[in-house]
């Protein structure tokens, strides 16, 4: 997985609340069996007309925002389904940091599996950052010190230490968990004895 340490660039403002996963990547693009190639379909219904032509007034279709690596979005970003195609499409488009006042749980979690940093800020800071984004100011995200800097202003953010470490190191969860193989086996043996019915094979 890609490491995330610092990130610099302009941010695209998307001041819509409850942006759901169907808006991020509609179902017709879930038929892929690959993780890549979804960036072109990101925000499909907002981004293209019925003939598939780019809508000129959609923020990610306008310069310089079509190169944004950062998104500043309205409340409750990523609600809806568990589709990891949502972070995949954001990542494939080039976005690796999303700033909002809140995120839906599954989406939030999925971001970290893909080297994307979701940042939660207060409503006041969100408004401020939304304005900075519209004015095409340069954002600097620094994960080790947990700061967003724009125009000389510093806004701190919280992140759970284990998530931070994994992003900075670009660590793969499965590899870490496999170090606990013995604990998993011990657990299974004990449970098989205590609750044998749970281990009835599905076949």
């Amino acid at each position: 997985m890609d490491k995330f340490i610092t990130l610099k660039g302009i941010a695209a403002p998307l001041p819509i609340v409850n942006i759901d996963t169907d808006m991020i990547i509609p179902k017709q693009f879930l038929k892929t069996i690959k993780r890549t190639g979804l960036g072109i379909s990101l925000f499909y219904e907002m981004r293209y007309d019925h003939q598939g032509q780019e809508l000129k007034n959609f923020i990610l279709n306008t310069k310089p925002f079509n190169q944004s690596k950062i998104l500043v979005a309205g409340d409750n970003f990523g609600c809806g389904s568990s589709r990891e195609h949502a972070p995949w499409s954001l990542k494939d488009f080039g976005i690796s940091c999303i700033i909002s006042t809140s995120f839906a749980d599954i989406f939030y979690n999925n971001c970290f599996q893909n080297g994307i940093l979701p940042i939660v800020v207060s409503p006041e800071n969100s408004k401020k950052l939304m304005d900075f984004a519209s004015d095409q100011k340069e954002f600097e995200i620094d994960l080790p010190s947990q700061n967003i800097s724009v125009e000389g202003e510093k806004i701190g953010f919280d992140i759970e230490p284990y998530r931070k470490e994994r992003l900075i190191e670009g660590l793969d969860d499965i590899g870490i968990t496999m170090n606990y193989e013995q604990s998993i086996t011990d657990y299974e043996l004990l449970q098989k004895k205590n609750k044998p019915w749970i281990f009835k094979d599905i076949k």
């Binding site: 568990s82 589709r83 990891e84 972070p87 599954i106 979690n109 999925n110 499965i174």
Partner: peptide
Amino acid sequence: FGIGTSEVEH
């Protein structure tokens, strides 16, 4: 609960 694809793999 629902999980993402990376977690399915996990």
